[in-house]
Design a protein around this nucleic acid. Structure first.
Length: 573
RNA sequence: GGCCCCGUAGCUCAGCGGAUAGAGCAACCGCCUCCUAAGCGGUAGGUCAUAGGUUCGACUCCUAUCGGGGCCGCCA
């Protein structure tokens, strides 16, 4: 139930009736007619722009349309008053039973309140994290993980059929580097002195992997060349890293539906198949790219390569898919991977990348557009940098200085709930300041605690009421403006879910929850000065019972929102 | 040079083409003998970077310019 779409339907029905009796000309589009919460609550409960949107096409003054529409709207049982205001808005005030109905709806729908059928019948694949399997996840990955996971949950809540997927980059040169680094640790495990030169990973996290390798193969790889051990160690090391990464993901509450290996694309003809699809569409050719303007690499020389005509699908230049030595570029398996996703029948693909992959967006979209003949949409969400602060001071990460901040560091210090919420209180494409000190602080400065606290408070109130023997009444009794303000906010929840899902912006949920908590806390506090406004009154059990549905509804909506974000709704604090 | 993102209150940021642009922090003034003060109320603070355009209506869409960041052929 979404009262905004309900009332919009009422408005549309009234407009249809006006067309039927000649008050409006036939053939008008009502697509842009909205029913929205007004910015200023003094304007009423809801406003529609119908008269202004239709005035031009109908060849009538907004005022004339509005007057006729108002006359029809007031006959609706849900509408108390309707009046024309400003440039032609129609402000609606709804009858009180609508609001008590909303509360009843929330209570009976419970965790289903706000679920939408927006995405029903649409299959979406959300690919996120996809960090190279060469080490533990760091803070940047954490943001991508949290964002992608919340987005996936949001889309699921909005009715989409969602797959959460991780693309393992286990096919490129970085895995060779990993294997060599593990080999050094292996030698070390055998008591040899080793030096980590540039181009190897010196991190301690590979020590146990080297030891595990020793356990497995004994001294078989000692004093042997890469031709003997490289391939095996590559697989062994990648496997070990993925175990590490899965643990990291679990620590922050991320569970993937599928891990997809880049390596599985090689030697199976699948890359070739995908490229063949592009060839069929005449999008592959041999050619030479021009040097990039402005900043030209020093060793630039023109070279003939195999290119994908991505410019035919909106890219700025065509892109190489094969190196001059005949190997695939990174782009080629990526094309194959997306071709695979398309073949699996998704209607929409979403990739969550770090901002440093910004240059990759157009070519990837071009590939998906080409391979699906424009039928499958690809939305790429780039997550910006996380700037770390400790005690208000910027905190620089450096692998060399050992100040490399991992996902584990974050979770260990502030916990999964806090890390997730904080990272979702910013748009994905805005940089994020993350202050360890503030994150664990229990103050209003920290939105996590504010929202959690409001939820805990509703739980506490329900417990006290139960202790008094008060059971929630069937119908809520709404007496004060502050109570109505809370209900209005609650009524916006289903609408907000749809907006957030349509724009792929889970941060809207976090901001909404803060607003709802604020509305609730505000009215709660007025109970200090006006004891009659308290929800739980020891000397008035029926009165208490008549307020409990509202308290319960607030609890439900906050819990539903936090669940979408993957944050635990705490019952006590 | 090209492409992408950002520019909104002193600071950090919200804002689905709609009315007088919002919140938190910081500043100032108030409010706690318990429905969880980890809070609440109030005051002050704005040429929404700039200039055009589209529109009944622009912080929102388009174009240009300025400023900040990122990326830019065999690295993934």
């Amino acid at each position: 139930m979404n009262i905004f779409t309900d009332i919009r339907s009422v408005v549309i029905a009234a407009l249809d009736a006006m067309v039927a009796d000649g008050a409006l000309p036939p053939g008008l589009s009502f697509a842009n007619v909205t029913a929205e919460p007004p910015r200023d609550a003094a304007h009423g409960d809801m406003a529609t722009n119908a008269a202004m949107v239709l005035a031009k096409a109908a060849g009538k003054a907004p005022r004339d349309i509005a007057d006729t529409l108002v006359a029809r709207l007031v006959t609706n049982a849900q509408i108390e008053t309707a009046e024309v205001a400003g440039p032609g808005f129609i402000n609606l005030r709804l009858v009180e039973s609508v609001w008590t109905g909303v509360v009843g709806e929330v209570v009976s729908a419970g965790e289903g309140y706000g679920r939408s059928d927006l995405g029903t019948g649409t299959k979406v694949n959300v690919e996120y994290v996809s960090a190279n399997p060469t080490g533990p996840l760091h803070v940047g990955h954490t943001r991508g993980a949290v964002f992608g996971d919340a987005l996936a949950s949001l889309l699921d809540f909005a009715g989409y059929e969602v797959t959460r997927e991780y693309y393992i980059n286990d096919g490129g040169a970085q895995v060779d580097v990993l294997a060599r680094s593990v080999y050094l640790r292996y030698l070390e495990a055998h008591g040899q002195e080793v030096a980590f030169e540039d181009g190897t990973y010196p991190g301690d996290y590979l020590k146990p992997v080297g030891e595990a390798l020793k356990e497995k193969v004994g001294d078989a790889y000692l004093d042997k060349g890469e031709d003997v051990w490289l391939e095996d160690v590559r697989g062994f090391a990648t496997e070990a890293m993925m175990v590490l990464i899965r643990e990291d993901l679990a620590a922050i509450g991320v569970k993937m539906d599928r891990f997809y290996s880049e390596k599985s694309l090689y030697g199976t003809g699948r890359i070739e198949d995908a490229i063949e699809e592009l060839k069929k569409r005449d999008l592959i050719y041999r050619g030479t790219l021009e040097a990039p303007k402005g900043k030209v690499p020093e060793d630039w020389e023109p070279r003939e390569q195999t290119l994908f005509r991505s410019t035919a699908h909106g890219d700025d230049v065509d892109r190489p898919i094969m190196k001059s030595d005949g190997d695939w570029t990174y782009f080629a398996p990526d094309i194959a991977y997306h071709w695979d996703k398309i073949s699996r029948g998704y209607d929409a693909l979403i990739d969550v990348f770090g901002a440093d992959h910004g240059g990759y967006v157009k070519r990837m979209k071009a590939a998906v557009s080409a391979l699906s003949d424009g039928k499958v949409t690809l939305d790429i969400k780039l997550t910006q940098l996380v700037k770390l602060y400790k005690d208000g001071e910027p905190f620089k990460m450096s692998k060399r200085a050992g100040t490399f901040v991992t996902l584990r560091d974050v979770v260990d210090q502030v916990g999964s709930d806090v890390a997730r919420f904080v990272m979702l209180t910013r748009k994905n494409d805005a940089p994020l300041d993350f202050d360890f000190a503030k994150a664990v602080e229990g103050s209003k400065d920290n939105p996590v605690f504010y929202v959690q606290y409001a939820h805990a408070r509703t739980c506490s109130m329900m417990r006290s009421a139960e202790g008094l023997g008060a059971k929630p009444a069937d119908t809520v009794n709404l007496e004060y403006a502050g109570e109505l303000a809370i209900v209005r906010k609650i009524a916006e929840w289903p609408r907000l879910v749809e907006i957030a899902a349509r724009t792929n912006e889970p941060h809207r949920i976090a901001f909404y929850l803060y607003e709802l908590a604020s509305e609730f806390n505000s009215f709660y506090s007025s109970g200090k000065e006006f004891p009659e406004r308290k929800f739980v009154k020891e000397d008035d059990i029926p009165g208490t019972a008549s307020k409990l549905p509202l308290v319960s509804a607030v609890r439900t909506v906050i819990a539903n929102g936090l669940n979408v974000l993957g944050v635990t709704p705490a019952e006590e604090m």
